[in-house]
């Protein structure tokens, strides 16, 4: 996965970038299965690896596929990136180690979902329970985000009728 990203940063052929990105998403999806996040993996595979790649290819088809050489040296971006990275290192240092069952996220809110969710709602997939019921409003928001993007794309790329008339 990391190799795909490194290759992605280096290469200038946008077609290769897109293919590498698809590969990367797919690998991410497998990692997610390993992390027991089956629902997420399924979504990432369908939407991240599948649909995003189709979209990117579609956009590439409409644009040029070679990236130009960057005109200036990337020192400032590098500095910003490393600065952010350092803050992240600083921040993650004290986090609970991997697979620590006593970490706060396993002891505070989540147990109740696991204990009560299936009983109260009759749905054994706890992810679905939380998604649709406990945090149903988030999901409403997320549906609205999709809706917004759809409307936005229509507003941007909607047919220009006058152009077509001009052609005929």
């Amino acid at each position: 996965m990391m190799i795909a990203v490194v290759a992605l940063t280096r290469t200038r052929n946008l077609f290769a970038v897109v293919v590498l990105f698809g590969l990367y998403s797919f690998l991410t999806a497998t990692v997610m299965v390993a992390l027991d996040a089956v629902d997420v993996a399924m979504t990432e595979a369908a939407i991240g690896a599948g649909f995003s790649t189709v979209l990117l290819l579609g956009a590439l088809h409409l644009c040029k596929s070679e990236e130009e050489k960057p005109a200036h040296k990337p020192w400032l971006p590098l500095a910003v990136t490393i600065g952010t990275g350092l803050v992240l290192v600083y921040g993650t240092w004290d986090l609970p180690p991997f697979s620590d069952a006593t970490a706060p996220i396993h002891t505070h809110v989540a147990p109740r979902y696991l204990a009560d969710g299936p009983r109260v709602t009759g749905v054994p997939n706890v992810v679905t329970t939380i998604l649709a019921s406990y945090r149903g409003f988030d999901t409403l928001g997320e549906t609205v985000v999709v809706f917004t993007a759809g409307i936005g794309v229509i507003a941007l790329l909607g047919r220009r009728r006058y152009v077509r008339r001009g052609k005929q």
Partner: peptide, 23 residues
């Protein structure tokens, strides 16, 4: 009153404002 819900609504307003500006 929920941190993640705040992010979701932030994205709703942001995405719609990107589209509005582009008009």
């Amino acid at each position: 009153g929920d941190a993640f819900n705040l992010f979701v609504f932030l994205e709703i307003s942001s995405l719609s404002s990107y589209a509005l500006i582009a008009l």
